[in-house]
Structure formats: structure tokens, C-alpha cells
């Protein structure tokens, strides 16, 4: 079983997010990057499937500038067999369909049985890549998987629906499946894994100019949300804060 895991490097949840001078995205120079958390669960699921099967290959694929080698290396240290970096300039692609087409052109050569990805990225949050790739490569697709069971030429997944509902779906392979966070406990890399990762291959792919695609949607501007709500900020020492909260509960909201 040959499994691709799509991994993205995104700003960490605690990172500063200063706007870039042209206000089209953030200034990445002071951003701390991490592996997109849902992708970490997808990676763990791929490693678990491979271990259960007793054979196979887990290939981690990421698109971005040279900084993303860090997350590819991290995935290799956790047990992925090799990595692929689709090279990109610092101005990362934000049109989901273009992202999907670029990944599809690289994945096509590899004939994967299974493509796993996190349900969405913490940066642009378009939540489409895995499904787009599945469609572009003629694979079956499912999203928000919280359990996977690989069978002969098939995969059965438990999908999360809304409001506490679930559903089992069985798909023929090859399939592209997006993974919901929390379905497993992602491992940490071992010291041996970290040492071993240094010897593993990361193939760098620069898509040729003829693969340049015209974007169908563009992100024109980012801005800090303006709150329309009147918010009372309750400040002071703990005693003053507690007194004001009690007051609010009694007199403003009238719940006690």
C-alpha cells in the first residue's frame, strides 16, 4: 500500500501575524511556523495503516518555499519513508484549485493507493485540497474521517457529520480522504527517528513554466477584523474582576 500524506506548514496558533506591506498576506519574517495540526493527525493515521499492514510506503508531500523542509523532515523523523517538496516562492499559492492541480500533477506520476490530508489548513482554511486532488485524479473521496479500516482494494471510513451524527462509507481504492483532528494521538519523533530522517530523501520538484496555471480566484487583501460589538473589558486585580462579574451576572444579564 502506497500512501501519500499532504502536509502544510502554517503559522502556529500563538504566532504574531503582522500584515505584509501590500496587505495581501502576512509578513512571514516574524512568523513561527508549525505543521498544520490536522495534517499531523493524517500523518499519524498513514503511519498506523502502514504498521498494521506490515508493509507499504508513506510519502510526505508539501508545497511551499524552502522553510517547509522543516515539516517534511519532522514527518520523516516520525516514520515517513521519503519526502517530496513542490517548490514555491515565498508568495504562497492561495487559489485552492491551482493548489489542487499542482499537487495532482506531481501525485499522478506516483500512483498512490491512498492520499490522506488534514481537513483544512490553519492559514487559508479553504478545506478543499484533498477532495480536489481526488477528483482531478479520478479517485473516490471522503472527508472528515474519524476512523479508517483498510481492506482488500477498499477503505472503510467513519465520517463525522454535524451535531453528533456519524456515517460509515466504504470506498474503492485509490481514494483521497481528508482526516478530522483527534482521531488518533500523533507520535513524537524518537531520537533514532530524528537521526534516521537525515538520510531519507526529499525530492525537490520545480514545476515547469508550462505548468503555470491561471488563478480563478485571488486573495486581494487581508485585514484585522473590526468588531461591531460593544465589548466591556473587565480589568483590575482578581478581586475587582470578580466583583464586576458578579455585578454583571446580577444586574446586566440577570441570571442570578
Amino acid at each position: 500500500m502506497k500512501i501519500a500524506v499532504l502536509v502544510k506548514q502554517v503559522p502556529g496558533s500563538e504566532s504574531a501575524l503582522p500584515l505584509s506591506p501590500n496587505e495581501k498576506w502576512i509578513d512571514e519574517s516574524s512568523v513561527t511556523f508549525v505543521m498544520n495540526p490536522p495534517d499531523n493527525f493524517a500523518l499519524e493515521e498513514a503511519l498506523l495503516i502502514k504498521e498494521k499492514n506490515g508493509e507499504g510506503e508513506v510519502v510526505v508531500i508539501s508545497m511551499g518555499p524552502s522553510r517547509i523542509q522543516k515539516v517534511i523532515r519532522e514527518a520523516l523523523a516520525k516514520g515517513a519513508d521519503r519526502g517530496i517538496q513542490i517548490e514555491e516562492s515565498d508568495d504562497i499559492e492561495k487559489d485552492p484549485l491551482t493548489v489542487g492541480k499542482k499537487f495532482a500533477s506531481v501525485l499522478k506520476e506516483e500512483n498512490f493507493d491512498l492520499v490522506l490530508s488534514g481537513l483544512q489548513s490553519d492559514d487559508t482554511g479553504m478545506g478543499q485540497t484533498g477532495v480536489l486532488i481526488g477528483e482531478l485524479l479520478g479517485m473516490s473521496t471522503a472527508t472528515l474521517a474519524i476512523k479508517t479500516e483498510v481492506k482488500e482494494n477498499k477503505i472503510k471510513v467513519k465520517r463525522e457529520l454535524e451535531s453528533g451524527w456519524f456515517q460509515w462509507v466504504e470506498l474503492p481504492l485509490p481514494a483521497s480522504i481528508s482526516i478530522q483532528s483527534g482521531l488518533n494521538i500523533p507520535r513524537y519523533p524518537s531520537l533514532k527517528g530524528i537521526m534516521g530522517a537525515k538520510k531519507k530523501e526529499i525530492k525537490e520538484i520545480l514545476l515547469s513554466a508550462q505548468n503555470q496555471l491561471s488563478n480563478l480566484q485571488s486573495m486581494d487583501k487581508v485585514s484585522i477584523p473590526q468588531t461591531s460589538k460593544q465589548t466591556e473589558v473587565i480589568e483590575g486585580d482578581t478581586e475587582a474582576i470578580v466583583a464586576r462579574i458578579v455585578d454583571v451576572l446580577k444586574k446586566d444579564i440577570k441570571v442570578i
Binding site: 487559489d95 485552492p96 484549485l97 489542487g100 481537513l119 482554511g125 479553504m126 478545506g127 478543499q128 477532495v131 480536489l132 481526488g134 477528483e135 482531478l136 473521496t141 471522503a142 472527508t143 472528515l144 465520517r159 463525522e160 457529520l161 454535524e162 480563478l216 480566484q217
Partner: peptide
């Protein structure tokens, strides 16, 4: 923008080459 939308709409977007702006 529901879970169902997220499940199948990207397939329509890729099939017809129509951009999907979500959420």
C-alpha cells in the same frame, strides 16, 4: 458552508473548473 458542502463541492469545482470560494 456545511460538512456536506465541504464533502462534494470541491469535486464539482475541479470537474467544471469553476472556482469555489468557501466559508
Amino acid at each position: 458552508h456545511t460538512y456536506q458542502t465541504r464533502d462534494f463541492v470541491p469535486r464539482v469545482s475541479a470537474r467544471l473548473d469553476i472556482p469555489f470560494i468557501p466559508d
